[in-house]
């Protein structure tokens, strides 16, 4: 073995921006995260050209998985065209040569902030969710060493107490986004701040979901066909947002998760949160040939 055997040719930048050792660390942690679904695995979280808290965790996972044959979709609160999503998508394409798309059906790698697309994901797709706070126990236990011990002991009593308090004080569970969910009957995880509407989409899904928090330096995963059960009491069923009867003022689509747009006169209008599904609906109405995928919700009901 000589020195030149060990050295690699000089390059201005590694493929996919991250250097090879950063990728190997992420790969090793992803292996463990998939093996213990819902359990938070610490990782180093390297610098990327974006501020922590803007999706650096998801970006590092995407940069590790990406290759020139990938087709990447990036969404931010359901929208493909928000500044954050557009910047991340352009960066991913620039450093990898991967193709980009806005169509959920043709994407192989979907990085998302706070939404899961309305069309069902299949087994050849990977969903990467950006996570601001990976610790579901933080509201009840700010000390993260103690929180880790609580996960080790599967001691989730305070989570139940928190939900009970909300029901007593407010008459219903007030937790909107990041609804705590029990994964594989063992670890409680936060599904990232996706609305309750999206939580059932993780349960026994066909696709692999990887959740990564860059600022907090932890990642966890939900493999396909894994139980993801929102914490509920037997007599207080889990309820998703009451959006089944709302229709989108732009596309006319009905029965999906909506963004509320307050109007000057005090009323509200609603538009589809999944922007690409709205675009498809409008193009379909105008007579363009459009391929719709099967949706998780049909007529506003999860099926």
């Amino acid at each position: 073995m000589s020195l030149s055997d060990l050295a690699k040719p000089w390059a201005a930048m590694s493929y996919g921006f991250l250097d090879a050792s950063a990728k190997r660390e992420l790969r090793r942690k992803m292996v463990k995260a998939v093996a213990v679904p819902g359990c938070q695995m610490p990782y180093a979280s390297r610098e990327v050209p974006m501020a922590r808290g803007w999706g650096t965790g998801g970006l590092q996972v995407s940069l590790t998985l990406i290759n020139p044959k990938s087709v990447v979709k990036v969404i931010d609160q359901g929208a493909d065209d928000s500044v954050n999503a557009a910047s991340i998508r352009r960066f991913l394409a620039r450093v990898s040569g991967a193709m980009t798309t806005t169509d959920t059906l043709t994407a192989s790698l979907i990085q998302s902030r706070h939404r899961i697309p309305e069309e069902k994901l299949s087994d050849n797709q990977v969903l990467v969710l950006q996570v601001p706070n990976p610790e579901p126990l933080r509201p009840v236990q700010p000390n993260m060493s103690i929180a880790r011990q609580m996960h080790a002991d599967a001691d989730y009593s305070r989570m139940w107490l928190q939900l009970y308090e909300q029901i007593v004080c407010s008459g219903r569970v007030m937790q909107g986004a990041s609804y705590p969910s029990l994964v594989n009957g063992r670890h409680v995880m936060t599904p990232s701040p996706i609305p309750r509407w999206d939580v059932p989409k993780l349960h026994m899904a066909e696709h692999l979901t990887i959740l990564s928090a860059g600022r907090e330096k932890r990642l966890f995963a939900v493999p396909p066909f894994t139980r993801v059960e929102p914490l509920v009491f037997d007599d207080v069923p889990f309820q998703v947002e009451d959006h089944a009867d709302l229709s989108c003022y732009r596309s006319g689509a009905r029965g999906f998760f909506m963004n509320e747009i307050p109007q000057d006169d005090g009323t509200s209008q609603y538009e589809l949160s999944d922007s690409e599904y709205g675009v498809k609906t409008i193009r379909d109405r105008e007579g363009d040939p459009v391929r719709f995928g099967e949706t998780w919700y049909k007529n506003g009901k999860f099926s």
Binding site: A11, Y15, G16, V95, G97
Partner: peptide
Amino acid sequence: IPAFTEDEA
């Protein structure tokens, strides 16, 4: 675009 080297691939 940075090269997708043999090792990387």
